[in-house]
Design a protein around this nucleic acid. Structure first.
Lengths: 128, 128
DNA sequence: AACTATGGCGTACAATTGTCTGTCTGGCAA
DNA sequence: TTGCCAGACAGACAATTGTACGCCATAGTT
């Protein structure tokens, strides 16, 4: 599709915050960072600028403040990112990744229940 | 622990192949790449050298050929990589990642069954 | 002996990434 | 007014990453 440049780790981080805020100024994104992630205002600004020039966000001026908002669906970016990771780290197979998530990284009982619900729902759909 | 530098995408790719081969020369790793991933022999060599200097691999000379083998468990690297990804892309929650894997990226019936088996096994363990 | 393939090693180098320093402008509080 | 703050915009810059060239040595071939 759009064949966009691909995002770095830092850019991803900022993109996620922006999706969460739906639409925001540089300052709002900067404040959305957890306090321990000590990142400079200008750095966030640079990331947003780059995200815009790569086509992931669009920015419009509101008075003299720039408001950024998403231009591509999170889902798209997530898919591409995960696909790439699965490819490089597991040779393209997703199951080992799930195994890791479930077995090696602890999963809470609550999440486990939700996970089970997810697959139940999916299997139901598959049988009509 | 060891506070190792962290791996780039390309390095991860090479590291994975090496884990798969257990132990290998530059050439063997190079040949392990799928044909469509057109990568230069020297590039692979550089990656291996860097992986060694970062402490992920160890290399020993066998005659005049260098044999690389893992120095850290795949699991460790995988954990760190996934943790980082989950942090940046999902704000630290793993469940959305699973949801993505199951719902947005298709999962085969076969994988689904295996996934279910994993969950069953885990739940059984939890109840002693 | 000359040639070729294999492999080590050092080095190069452009692009990308992560981080910031400046500089300018328009409002708002003192 | 007189500054100070918010924020835009431009550009700097070192580190990392991806990719590769070239030189040298040795072992096997002709």
């Amino acid at each position: 599709m759009g064949e966009r440049p691909g995002l770095s780790k830092g850019e991803l981080e900022v993109a996620r915050l922006l999706w969460e805020l739906k639409s925001a100024t540089v300052r709002q994104v900067h404040e959305a960072f957890p306090p321990e992630r000590d990142i400079d205002f200008a750095t966030v600004q640079t990331y947003l600028r780059r995200l815009e020039s790569k086509g992931y966000l669009k920015g419009r001026m509101e008075g003299r403040t720039r408001i950024y908002s998403p231009r591509v669906q999170p889902r798209t970016v997530i898919r591409d990112t995960i696909d790439d990771l699965v490819e490089r780290l597991f040779g393209g197979e997703a199951l080992p990744l799930m195994r890791h998530l479930i077995e090696d990284r602890g999963i809470s009982p609550d999440d486990l229940a939700q996970l089970r619900a997810m697959i139940d729902r999916l299997e139901e759909d598959r049988h009509e």
